[in-house]
Amino acid sequence: MLRDITIGQYYPVDSVIHRLDPRVKLAGTMVFLISLFVTSKLPAYLLATGVLFGLIRLSRVPFRFITKGLKAIMILLVISVSFNLFLTTGTPIFRIGFLQITWEGISLAVFMGVRLIYLVLASSLMTLTTTPNQLTDGLEKGLGFLNRFSVPVHEIAMMMSIALRFIPILIEETDKIMKAQTARGADFESGNLIQKAKAMVPLLVPLFLSAFRRAADLAMAMEARCYHGGAGRTKMKPLHYEKRDKNAYLLMAVYFALMAASRFLPF
């Protein structure tokens, strides 16, 4: 269950999407996420669906890798969908006690569900096709103007990329600690939600301990390799826009215009 989080797991194949500039992919993900919230018209969602699945096909990442991220938000999804489903006022269809299901509720719930799912799919697609280092570079360069307002852009970007790199390692570690504790009689499986959550508490201490130890080791290893912040650093893979990146921006603009325009559809 712990291995299901795909964030930060680069899927190494060669595709158009992989080769795009990370700034394009970051901007594209943002544009896609915003576009889902500017409209709630059916044709617009059909367009968004077409675009999302088209991009997934283009990326050559197997579909099951992209949907893995969904399992992690399942609870959130169920909660938000059911809230929308049961607690929206409007034309009732039927009611059980104080809960009532309305037409408005159904449509809101469906939209909310679709938005959440697409949100995760789109960001998984981005992280699966972009190495964390590229991502960092993209953020660093794309947000570089913030340096003027004394925001430590490079440091934040570096922290993010390291966090991403260590997610799978810490997950593996959690698994190991869980197994070690299970072997000594700990029970993570049975009981209700609260009991399960309580059983997780003894995991945190050894996990944090080892995370801090790793952090200290890593800091030392980075220092030993001459890391001294962003100043005077060169890039192995410097970013510059290609023709395909410009085209991608153009397509993005067209897509967003269409999505925004759909607000004015009469139905």
Binding site: A221, M222, T234
Partner: peptide, 28 residues
């Protein structure tokens, strides 16, 4: 260092090898 996991910074082998030269300002 001893623990190989705690000294690899990047998520791709070649990017990790490039980390040191990047820090000392070697041209691309």
């Amino acid at each position: 260092f001893q623990n190989p996991d705690n000294q690899i910074i990047a998520n791709v082998v070649e990017e990790d090898v490039g980390f040191g030269p990047e820090n000392i300002g070697v041209p691309t």
